[in-house]
Every structure is written in structure tokens, then in C-alpha cells.
Design a protein around this nucleic acid. Sequence first.
DNA 1: CGTGGCATTGATATCATTCAAGATCTGTGG
DNA 2: CCACAGATCTTGAATGATATCAATGCCACG
Lengths: 254, 254
Amino acid sequence: MHAEPRPIEHQQAEAKQLESSFKVACSNCNLRELCLPVGLSTDEMQQLDGMVASRKKIKQGGHLYSSGDAFTMLYAIRTGFFKTCVVSEDGREQVTGFQMAGEIIGLDGIVSDKHNCNAIALEDAEVCVMPFNHVEDLSRQIPMLQRHVHKIMSREIVRENGVMMLLANMRAEERLAAFLLNLLQRLHARGYSKSELILRMTREEIGSYLGMKLETVSRTFSKFSEEGIIEVKQKNIRILDHDKLKAIFNASTC
Amino acid sequence: MHAEPRPIEHQQAEAKQLESSFKVACSNCNLRELCLPVGLSTDEMQQLDGMVASRKKIKQGGHLYSSGDAFTMLYAIRTGFFKTCVVSEDGREQVTGFQMAGEIIGLDGIVSDKHNCNAIALEDAEVCVMPFNHVEDLSRQIPMLQRHVHKIMSREIVRENGVMMLLANMRAEERLAAFLLNLLQRLHARGYSKSELILRMTREEIGSYLGMKLETVSRTFSKFSEEGIIEVKQKNIRILDHDKLKAIFNASTC
DNA sequence: CGTGGCATTGATATCATTCAAGATCTGTGG
DNA sequence: CCACAGATCTTGAATGATATCAATGCCACG
């Protein structure tokens, strides 16, 4: 995922001048179509540049935030891959999502002013830090941003509806097929191949997300592999038969 | 879903008197602590009265909205009980939630400007109809309302995180205990008994929500009944041992 | 007072889990 | 560069929880 330098001399000059502030400018970010509303005026775009207070690097395994932490920030993922998970009183961990570049993380904290889950980097990562107060202030000034924030939250609600369907109704093979197809689709939107991916999470984390044990995840991968649907080499997955994968996902009677 | 009528005569009298003239006034609604932000000025309160465009009655079994419908409105439930459910391509239905008085419904539609699930009345119901454009306009003027809308959406996200945990990690007994405790707690917040409730949904709908078959729901009710934890008479449930129910919910090793 | 929807209960089947052993990979220090 | 340890993954066999199939009972409603 490389940034394409914009060949606009004026901006480059400006960039040198404003080195530090440029660093956090949304208007120049190659992820802005994923993060931000489209169709903003230049004026509004400049206002938005102030939304990101800073950037933060998280090492693999590090916590971006933890359950119970005070909530004040939302984060836009710039690079890297995260998982979010809740932990029950008796210690059971449930992965509630995997997040990648361009996605917004931290919405769980709004309701109670403290975070309700852990956000953990699955690889070295960098995020844009957005004070939520500031997001709200700007939302009041820029209706398109307001709508965008609402859509992001609604999207998360709808996504979780889908996961509920998956957990409640589907069998192991369907779950894993749905999981792979979802990852592929999101990676494709970011310019990656439709037929290859590298899993950044362990079998156990996949299993937690999908409501199955790591052994079952492994067995199901092996089954798909035997059937010539995918090729599995540890965390490297190659899709050999996309249609078959879709058929498994759709089929209730199979 | 009332086990006991609310013994607040004053409010009942008021409701009758002002039935027509204050038909859509939030400021006089006895549910406002549930629906609306607290601590608004009188001015702001009056502004909010304009948020509800109308009321709408839904008969038992009727659809408030259906998947695919254009999204323009949010709804605040005034009376009655709803379920929301998504239906997969192959026809499997998944109940994603049960909603009662004071709760907001329709958030699923924001992301794609059309609804992503069905909202069906489980008993005769009445809702306040709130054009979403109007909610957004007012949110820009009243920061406390803006924050409130964000909290409602965040709450839904966190709720669904909990359901994911339940579906992925818990056994039938734990799921049903969690379900009952959640209903009791929400009904209690509305002035109903902590030890009695009437289920407005069928065993099949409970099962769908909890990821189990209706027979398993029935068996689990019977088991709780045999153990003296609850008393089951069709849809009437009496809680005999609240602590035991909590213990089942919390216990992983039981 | 029947009819249809809903709920209960039993017997059996099935899918995923559990327990266990071994294989593979990764990173680290000698 | 190799050897080793810990983490992760794979695979097999036995077990168990829930689903499925089937029969019956109960209740509400016309």
C-alpha cells in the first residue's frame, strides 16, 4: 500500500514548509476516500485537516486502548491491522472484529465515556488520533461530515448484524467462507489481490471471531484445501475457486 | 411486556387530558428520560418537540419497516414491543434484537439509505416518527442532542458486541439466563417487576436471537423450572431465584 | 368446540469440541 | 550458521452438546 506522490509543486513546497503539520493532513492522505466523506469543498477539506491531532505508532501486540480506559479519541488506521475484543468477567475472550487501513476504531467508547473493548495491533501499525470532541465540533459545522460519522456507526451496527447471523445460523464451513470473502473484499477495495491474502491473525483469533475452536478452523482450512478451493500455507491463503467459496457461503443445503 | 401496570396515576391522568394537544410533545412524554438527553434547557426542550413529526400505530405482526425500504426516519417506541431481524439470501432469519418502549429503532438504515432489516411489532405498538434529516439538523444546533445520538448508536454497537460474545462462547443455559436477565433489567428500568415478566416473543424467536433451536429453548426453560430457578407458564415467567440465574450467566465452569 | 399455532418432551443423529500427540514455523542466542 | 525453545498449526479419536425428527399436549380464537 504505497502513497502516490501528488505531482503538484505548490503542495510540495508547502509540504516542506509545514513539515510537521503536513504530516497529519487528511487532504493529502491516500486513504481519504475510505476515511472521509467525498465531495467536500476545499474549505471544508482544510477544516478537516485539523481533525487529526497527531499520529501514533503501535507495535505488534500493543494495545491501542484497553477496556476501561477513558474514551476521548477515535482512531483512523493508517497502516497495520487490528483486532478488537471484549473479555467477559470469567476471562473468556471474544474477538469482535478485525480492522484494517482506512477503518475507524474506538466507537465502542462513546456510550459510557470509557472503552468497552481492547484494540490490539496484529502487526506494527500507525493510527491517526482524532479527539472525539473535535470530531463532534466539526460535525456540527460540516453536515457532510456529520452524515459520514453517522454512516460509519451505522455500518458497524449492520456489520455486527451480519456476524450475529453468521454465529447463530451458519456451520463452520460457511463461517470460514464468509470470513475469507469478507477479508478479500475489503483488501480488494484497498488495491490488493482478490485471490491471495496473508492472514494477520492466528487460528485461535479467527476461531474466536467465528465462534469455533482453533482446531475446527484448522480442519476447515484443510477441508477447503483438499477440495481445491484454496491453498493454505500457514498464514498465506491463495484462492483457487472463488465461486465455490461463494457457493459454500450461500448454501444452506450443503 | 408488563408484569405490573405502572401505578403512577398522575401521569395517566395527564396523558388522557393532553392526549390531542400534546400528542407529539417530547417535553411532556413520560419516556423522555429514556429517549432524550437529560439536562436540556427549556428552550432546547421546546426545539426538541419539533423532532417528532408524527406518531404511528403498528398492529401486532405488522412491519414498521422492511429490509430494502428507503430510510428516512428513526422511530422512538412509545408503547409495544418489536423485534428486528435480518433475512439471508437463502431465507434464514436472524432476530438481531428485541426493542421496547423508549428505545430507538431504525439506525441500521443510515449507512445505505435503505433499511437492512425488518422491524416487526410483537404486540400492538405506537412509535414516534422522527425524520432523520431533522434529527441531524437539531443535532448540529444542540450539542447535547448530538452527543445523545452518538451514544445511542455506540450503545447498540456495544450491545451487539455482547451478543457476539454470547453466541460465540456461551452454552444454551448461559444464553437463556443472559437473555432473561437483560429483559428483566430493561423492564425494571421502566418500572416493572424484577421477578416477573411476560414474553412477547415465541420460543422460536428467542431461539433465533440466541442461536439455538426452539426445542432447546423449551428444554432449557424446563430445566430452569425443575431446578427451581424460574416458574414457566407459557409466556409468563416468574423468577424464583435471581441469584442462581446470575450464577448461571457468570459461570463458565458449570 | 374444533382448528391451528405454539410449546413440550423423547429418541436419535450430527457437528463441533475436547484431549492428545506430533509437526512446523519463528525468533534468539551461541 | 545452526540449534533450540516456544508458539502456532495440523491431525486423529473419543466425547458431548445441540439439532433433528417425531409425537403429543396445550391454549387462544374464531
